[in-house]
Design a protein around this nucleic acid. Sequence first.
DNA 1: TTCCCGATTTACT
DNA 2: GTAAATCGGGAAA
Length: 206
Amino acid sequence: MKKSKILPLSFYQRSTELVARELLGKKLCRKLSNGKVLSGYIVETEAYVGLLDKACHGFGGRKTPRTQVLYENGGIAYIYFIYGMYYCLNVVSSKKNHPEAVLIRALEPCDNVDWMKDKSQNSINEKKILNGPGKLCKVLDIDKGLNTHDLTQNPLWIEKGKDIKSEAIVSSPRINIGYAEEWIERPLRFSVKDSPYISVKIKEAK
DNA sequence: TTCCCGATTTACT
DNA sequence: GTAAATCGGGAAA
């Protein structure tokens, strides 16, 4: 029995910023009901760090049916519906009773790229198939049914992928959280430097 | 129960 | 650059 490439639950049960940073380069895999496996390397994430973070759904200890999953132990999926038409995939991190998670914002396509191009109706440019949290969920067929799913199990899991050097990781402010006041500028977004697959271009520091 | 608004994407001016 | 699409969750009443 060969050693599993799937990341263990202990990987997720650490500080959220660390998990967000180290998820870069990892391989997100999704097995469809027809048996086909789609995958991509994670190139962009954002950390949502719970109680004090005004951008986090669990801010201030808010606890509702939807955010319940954020309070669980790390290693499971938190999927929510936004703007009436899109889903976003998050990885719950940290320990029980800490409402923290990492938003997966963009992937570099890996397996079954042609199938994904078809699905996204963007058959020309593979750089734009998975470059956004709403888009990657649509293409990978991720919806509420996978909420609370264990990310070490079929049909959605994360494996070891490419090695990303720490010099190749850049942090920047998060996207579209204009309501979060002093948290808007916090550099909790992590991405692979110069990757053509990220969602929103990073503002250059002058 | 009602009302407001969003961790987005796409199309248009 | 800005706006429209579109609906469930959360807060208020």
